[in-house]
């Protein structure tokens, strides 16, 4: 059932992107905007991955801000910072035989290349490929856990909160389109590869902020961004 919901939501989100893509393209052609693709500036916006993810996993709350800084030619610096809080619901706690709580934040910094080359005036759309370095710091613990034994007594224990950190590399690719003047919407497909995890105790993170499932050394994720472009200086 959850899997069907996921599929339906991806269809919905992608249709939403397609419809906006079409309407914004027509708008651009009719208004004949004069901005050039080389206008210097930066964007500030939000990554909707966390709020969308909350619909599928209500135990988790996440939010992040995102920025693209335009460099000369087709290069961009990408930065993202955010937080993620996770507490198991009673249902999940019972199913997994332990309570889990985590609070953490993350930072990503990387470089993108826009390989969408078009001479159409006013077309500021992009197709990005790039690489990010990611770092997450989180405090997590188990207020209680049970190890079941079918013959002898079950074991009841707890693990107090402690701090861990993770480092990863993220490869990303995806389009971004200008919905309205200076307002961009885009998505990227992200392949994340864990490099190191500094964890002094037995508990593994259920979820790593900005990375995804803590058990996996490779995760696949999406970013859906809504950004506003702040221009400065003169167009070269």
């Amino acid at each position: 059932m959850v899997k069907h919901l996921k599929i339906l939501s991806f269809i919905f989100i992608n249709l939403f992107l397609i419809s906006y893509q079409t309407s914004s393209g027509q708008q651009r052609e009719s208004t004949k905007l004069k901005e050039h693709r080389e206008q210097p500036g930066m964007t500030l916006g939000v990554n909707l991955e966390g709020p969308i993810g909350h619909f599928f996993d209500t135990d988790k709350s996440a939010f992040s801000v995102i920025s693209h800084f335009k460099l000369p030619s087709n290069w961009f610096i990408r930065a993202e910072a955010g937080f993620e809080n996770l507490t198991f619901s009673e249902e999940n706690q019972e199913e997994r035989n332990y309570h889990y709580q985590s609070n953490g934040s993350f930072l990503k910094l990387g470089i993108l290349y826009d390989f969408f080359d078009v001479d159409e005036p006013g077309n500021n759309d992009n197709i990005f490929v790039g690489i990010n370095y990611g770092f997450a710091l989180q405090e997590h613990g188990s207020k209680s856990f049970i190890i079941e034994n079918n013959y002898w007594d079950d074991y009841h224990g707890s693990l107090s909160k402690y701090v861990i950190n993770n480092h990863w590399i993220e490869f990303l690719a995806g389009p971004r389109t200008e919905l309205l003047k200076n307002l961009y919407m885009g998505w990227t497909l992200n392949l994340r590869v864990k490099i190191t995890e500094n964890n002094s105790r037995v508990l593994k993170p259920f979820s790593i902020p900005g990375y995804g499932k803590g058990d996996n050394n490779i995760t696949l994720g999406f970013s859906y961004s809504l950004e506003y472009f702040i221009p400065w200086g003169k167009t070269p």
Binding site: I7, F10, L189
Partner: peptide
């Protein structure tokens, strides 16, 4: 642009289904 975007959207949709974890 539209064609490329549609292709990428389709690719992402397929990958998103493939990425659903058991």
């Amino acid at each position: 642009m539209k064609l490329i975007t549609y292709l990428l959207i389709t690719a992402s949709f397929i990958l998103s289904i493939a990425g659903c974890e058991n």
